[in-house]
Nucleic acid binder design. Structure first.
Lengths: 360, 360
DNA sequence: CTTACGATTGAGACCGGACTCACATCGGGG
DNA sequence: CCCCGATGTGAGTCCGGTCTCAATCGTAAG
């Protein structure tokens, strides 16, 4: 009945107006639900629209309202469940307020991020949520923020930018968990991360990631408080693919004065590390203790279940979206700003080290 | 220097034209790289654009080119790594061809899916990739396809639609893995899925999901070939949240004639099932055998490592995006259509059942 | 019976680009 | 020296909506 007219062009207000025998302006008013329209005309227009199965062109609408009802989300890697969950929080919240989400993956590459931000701006998104690949190269984000376009940072902060940021403070939890490891007798604690740097880690070097920097600060502080020297040589960055992670793991476990505990920087890297440990025939926690960031469901299934640092990732996504939408609506930021804290979930992968050198 | 003029309105071609002292048309030609423009004018315009830091309004551009360089992706749940990976495949591929991705989550709800498709169409996406929540209620997708808008189905097919579909054929792998379980002595094989149905499972009922239907067909066929009767009572659908999954797991394992093997329909559900098994104090595979769909990295870390059915999810995402882009470019579909096959990865979670009733 | 004011309505401008068309301009061939 | 096609250029239209503005209509007040 009504599904004819599948010619070429889409149906426009003008078509509906003609069918309803009113002016384009009246039809637009009736359809867009603004201005004054008599009941009779409204009904006639709506009926015609229905008959022609008219659908408004949101692009055209955005053109002169200036609002696209779309927000851009830029993350390093959606494949990582950490971001998967955060993205879920964002999309759920955005949808509730009538916003759509354009998702861009940067592979943690700043150049890609710069590009992504530009493209999204060109598409006139109403605002941006970015998990910055770098906490140092942030001029592009700075520009966005200064231009007044709504922007919320997620998961990591960027240099000295005053943009709203939804991230957990890593220093405290890192400090807490390191102290826990120290109290369990560990001194040789390795920290393995995918963070790309130009040179191997040395104390005090400027790190691209505020997250990692905070974590290392927290570790160092804990070591210092307990008057132990921080094992700089066990901080391993640039852990890329699974193979390089395995190599690094073997390295820190087989070196002369090996690590007795390993901290994995995220859930993805953790998989390869645990696998490498198993391949070496070592037992957790008897031979090596293990601690990881991110509390994924599978960490409860291993034997023993893994001790993790849980982060409220979904909630951060929700908060980021909410904050962004407030900005878009011209509302002031929520005060006080929401705080997110990570918690140490002690399961079974951290063991007590009796003497300094237990393993033969 | 150049970053002044952060007033209100964005810079447009008209502004650039004025600055370069040429007509709007010439400026547009120089910037859009079309038509004939003298070298001198081109340089003048480009310089002015740079100076004003002009950025084209993609919305306006889309308006009269009809192309938005954006594709819509509709999935049930991005939080599920299965879709996370597929999405990654899609975005990676889309980006290479200059397309952006608008991602919508439906929570496997058809109404939400209908809505998502409508919204994306209103936004004039160039094409759609949909993982249909239902293989039965597909009129909305049918309409999209008939309207000629590029559409590719992912992961599941939808009724009798002739739209291009990138999915693994489930019947074969289900048949193969069921035969494997049967050969290992299992007769009481449970199949647990989140698929929502109005009534409990009974043989031959019409299922909303082609995927699940195929899997059950494969199982039944295997049972039939070996002349064993298919344990209908162990097909459990409507497994919703973690708690209900646990309940179902306990149920099939504690009933009078309990299941000796459980097949989990996806990686998310698998987590809760394994957890429930562990809570019951049962060992895999000594007490219960376990098999799951989706080969996630963590399945290698459990003790024992889990036997899984691996699906080429990333590649399906890539293929879906490629196929969609071909459609958008007006090219015919690749022939032969890419085939995706799942493989049974035998690790350690399926054991041999000596006698019919080993457990006391 | 005239006037005023609010509700309706249509014409047309406008958003920011792409693109059509008519009008130069210029150089080479006849 | 004139004609013709190729190249440059500007004016103006169009895409599909929103929105301003002036005109029209109805009717209650004076």
């Amino acid at each position: 009945m009504s599904s004819n007219g599948s010619r070429r062009r889409d149906i426009t207000v003008a078509d509906v107006a003609k069918a309803a025998q009113v002016s384009k302006a009246q039809a637009a008013r009736a359809l867009g639900n603004y201005g004054a329209v008599s009941e009779e005309v409204r009904e006639r227009v709506l009926a015609a629209a229905e008959e022609l199965s008219y659908r408004p062109n949101e692009l055209a609408r955005s053109m002169n309202t200036g609002k696209s009802h779309t927000i851009g989300v830029v993350v390093g890697d959606i494949e990582n469940p950490h971001f998967g969950l955060a993205t879920r929080g964002i999309t759920d919240t955005a949808k509730k307020s009538g916003f759509n989400v354009i998702l861009v993956n940067t592979d943690e590459d700043t150049a890609a991020e710069v590009d992504a931000v530009r493209v999204l701006l060109d598409k006139r998104v109403d605002g941006l949520i970015v998990a910055p690949a770098s906490s140092v190269e942030t001029q592009h984000l700075q520009r966005v923020h200064e231009s007044g376009r709504p922007l919320v940072l997620l998961d990591r902060n960027a240099g000295q930018m005053e943009a709203e940021t939804m991230a957990v403070s890593m220093a405290a939890i890192s400090h807490e968990s390191t102290r826990y490891l120290l109290q369990s007798g560990h001194r040789r604690i390795a920290f393995i991360s995918t963070l790309r740097t130009e040179s191997p880690y040395r104390a005090g070097m400027l790190l691209d990631s505020s997250q990692i920097a905070e974590r290392l600060d927290g570790m160092q502080q804990a070591f210092q408080e307990q008057e132990h020297s921080f094992p700089e040589d066990l901080v391993r960055l640039n852990a890329g693919d699974a193979e390089s992670i395995r190599r690094i793991t073997r390295d820190v476990l087989l070196m002369p004065d090996p690590a007795t505990a390993i901290v994995a920087s995220d859930g993805l890297i953790a998989l390869s590390i645990v696998e490498a440990i198993q391949e070496l025939g070592l037992a957790i926690p008897a031979d090596v203790s293990f601690l990881m960031y991110d509390d994924f469901a599978w960490t409860r299934l291993t034997t023993p279940p893994l001790t993790v640092i849980a982060q409220p990732v979904y909630n951060m996504g929700v908060a980021a979206a909410k904050a962004l939408i407030r900005q878009i609506d011209g509302l002031p930021p929520l005060t006080p700003a929401p705080k997110f804290t990570a918690t140490l979930v002690r399961r079974g992968s951290v063991g007590t080290l009796r003497t300094a050198e237990t393993r033969s």
